[in-house]
């Protein structure tokens, strides 16, 4: 596979996260409505520049009726990325729409976003830079390093936390409404040993993840397989559906940097 094919695969995986995210917003637009918790009338007051000379432009784009069009465009652009176009122009256009709409979402409100949206912006932004300036290899390096930074940061901060080291974190999180799973919560409360093992497994996988870049095929394959299993478990237990696609989208870049160059 060429560097370009690895980048196409990365774009396709991140496009799945973008499509799901757009459709979820379009089906339940209440949170984006004028009086929703991520509404524009309050969101525009968070920074002075949003009501300055740029205010009229942002108002025109970010009111709910027009923002739905932005979401439809974003969804359409992501669907285009799923098709392995050979022509670069449609890919650049689709990536530009995905990236600009990600930025607009951040500008509109800081509420309701998650780490998957963040990774979609990082991956989409790097892919766009790669397509415009023909720096595919640099973009793949950037994506791989961002993924390792993400996992290592999350792992090290958990390792420093007494709540994670005591094994209380997983049952605590799984006991919540938004990330919870009643059956898993009950199981971990009944078996604190399993909860502690789960917490240490998460810490170990995340902290060790940067070793995927050292260039030893078995190490890279094992860590990526553990990463897939980890995200699959968070999808099933916590409903973090777009995290799976956004983070595995970085894996082709890791394979390229570690093994395929």
């Amino acid at each position: 596979m060429t560097a370009d094919q690895y980048l196409v695969l990365t774009e396709q995986l991140v496009a799945v996260a973008v499509v799901i995210s757009c459709l979820e917003y379009l089906v339940r637009p209440g949170v984006l409505s004028d009086h929703g918790l991520a509404g524009w009338p309050v969101g525009r007051l968070t920074r002075r520049w949003k009501t300055g000379p740029w205010g009229a432009v942002l108002d025109a784009i970010l009111v709910p009726s027009r923002y739905r069009i932005v979401l439809l465009l974003r969804c359409g652009a992501a669907v285009m990325l799923l098709v392995p176009w050979t022509e670069p122009v449609p890919r650049v256009a689709a990536l530009a729409i995905v990236v600009v709409s990600s930025l607009l979402a951040q500008v509109r409100s800081s509420y309701g976003h998650d780490g998957a949206d963040q990774m979609c912006l990082v991956v989409g932004g790097a892919a766009l830079v790669a397509r415009i300036a023909l720096v595919t290899e640099a973009a793949l390096w950037f994506i791989a390093l961002q993924a390792c930074l993400a996992y290592a940061t999350a792992g090290l901060k958990k390792a420093a936390s007494p709540v994670w080291r005591s094994g209380e974190a997983l049952p605590g999180v799984l006991g919540t409404t938004i990330y919870g799973n009643a059956r898993a919560h009950r199981t971990l409360v009944r078996h604190p040993g399993i909860a502690r093992l789960g917490c240490f497994s998460v810490i170990a996988i995340e902290t060790a993840f940067p070793l995927a870049l050292i260039g030893l095929a078995p190490v890279t394959c094992v860590l990526l397989a553990l990463g897939v299993a980890f995200h699959a478990s968070t999808v099933i237990l916590m409903g973090l559906n777009t995290f799976f696609w956004a983070f595995t989208a970085t894996y082709p870049a890791i394979v390229y940097v570690a093994l395929a160059r």
């Binding site: 780490g115 996992y151 999350a154 936390s161 974190a169 605590g172 999180v173 006991g175 919540t176 990330y179």
Partner: peptide
């Protein structure tokens, strides 16, 4: 990138 860390939302 400090997902659910250092203090997770419980």
């Amino acid at each position: 990138y400090n997902f659910f860390a250092p203090t997770p939302g419980t």
